[in-house]
Simulated assay, not measured.
Amino acid sequence: MKGGGDMNGLDGKQIGVAADRSADPLSNLIQKKGGSPVVYSIQGKQSLNEQTSHQNIKDFLAETFEWAIFTTGIGAKTLADSSVELGFYSSFIEKLNDTNLAIRGKKTLNWCKNNAVQVSMVSEDGTMENLLKTFSDKQMDGIRQRVFLQAYNQDDAKLKDQLEKLGCSVYLSRPYSYQAPIPQVLNDLKKAVIEQSLDAVVFTSKTQVKNLLANHPDTQKIVQAFNEQVLAVAVGKVTANELKRNGILNVLQPDNPKMGPMVVALDRYYQQVNN
């Protein structure tokens, strides 16, 4: 009889990796635990919208905003980089510190700390849902707030709409976007999930989940495969919520939303299942 500590939980397991930039370190972590990573990068290439970002900085400095909302660390950094290119960095940071700033996510918070930017509101669980709820609770009746919203091409229209329903006037800043993933790679992952040739798939962003489960004739088969045999693994709450929202019932996620703890949680899961 083998004890749980004598063997890795991922021995003999085929683990799909949906990530792009973090695919290599993630694959190494899986291999160290005895698993066989199979990379399907379905994130879609990130595109920086330089002209848009430059215009966003000029408008932010020229107009009056009661609030700024930063949804991603990449977005905050891209805007800051544009302010440097335009020679407006100090003005940008000064204006941010004179504006109520609401943020989501650890990477955004780290950017604020590194740039000496004061934050008025932080999403408690890292989700936009929580941030919007907190923001809604702070809204003053009858006062129309002008909001500078940094978002990207997924969910930006929905976020803008939700803020407008709260009575805000919204300026949408979209300093970067994601292109569609390579169709062949996406189809290969869909096929592997439906055929259940993978034991699990690890997702490191909501974008990957959206790309896999976008309206498609096979979406229901993919969801069914996850609910029957293939384990869906999410790096954190935002990604896990997107999986659940699409009908995937059993989602594994670590307590600490990072890649290392995610692979450890996956290893432990299979050790328990195997014993």
Results as ranks from 00 to 15, higher is better:
residue 5 G to H: 14
residue 182 I to T: 06
residue 160 K to D: 00
residue 6 D to K: 09
residue 129 E to A: 08
residue 9 G to W: 11
residue 182 I to L: 05
residue 205 S to I: 05
residue 154 Q to E: 02
residue 81 D to S: 12
residue 140 M to V: 15
residue 175 P to V: 08
residue 54 H to Q: 11
residue 21 R to E: 12
residue 17 V to S: 04
residue 141 D to H: 12
residue 142 G to C: 05
residue 48 L to F: 15
residue 3 G to V: 03
residue 115 N to C: 02
residue 38 V to N: 09
residue 79 L to Q: 11
residue 61 L to K: 02
residue 121 M to R: 13
residue 8 N to C: 02
residue 127 T to E: 06
residue 132 L to W: 02
residue 214 A to L: 03
residue 262 M to G: 02
residue 105 G to S: 04
residue 103 I to D: 09
residue 51 Q to D: 14
residue 112 C to V: 00
residue 266 L to N: 06
residue 99 T to E: 07
residue 72 T to G: 03
residue 150 Q to R: 01
residue 81 D to Y: 01
residue 17 V to C: 06
residue 210 K to L: 12
residue 217 P to C: 03
residue 231 L to T: 11
residue 61 L to C: 06
residue 124 E to A: 14
residue 134 T to N: 14
residue 77 K to W: 00
residue 245 R to A: 15
residue 228 E to K: 15
residue 33 K to Q: 15
residue 73 G to K: 03
residue 115 N to P: 08
residue 47 S to V: 14
residue 63 E to A: 11
residue 90 S to D: 15
residue 58 K to F: 01
residue 115 N to D: 07
residue 91 S to L: 07
residue 71 T to A: 10
residue 157 A to D: 09
residue 89 Y to C: 00
residue 267 D to A: 04
residue 229 Q to I: 02
residue 274 N to W: 01
residue 4 G to Y: 06
residue 136 S to W: 00
residue 250 N to S: 15
residue 30 I to E: 07
residue 11 D to Q: 14
residue 146 R to A: 10
residue 30 I to G: 11
residue 252 L to R: 04
residue 1 M to E: 09
residue 243 L to P: 06
residue 105 G to I: 07
residue 26 L to W: 10
residue 103 I to L: 14
residue 58 K to D: 07
residue 185 V to W: 00
residue 88 F to T: 01
residue 170 V to H: 10
residue 151 A to H: 08
residue 134 T to A: 14
residue 39 V to M: 10
residue 225 A to M: 12
residue 131 L to M: 10
residue 147 V to M: 02
residue 32 K to Q: 15
residue 29 L to H: 14
residue 30 I to C: 12
residue 116 A to F: 03
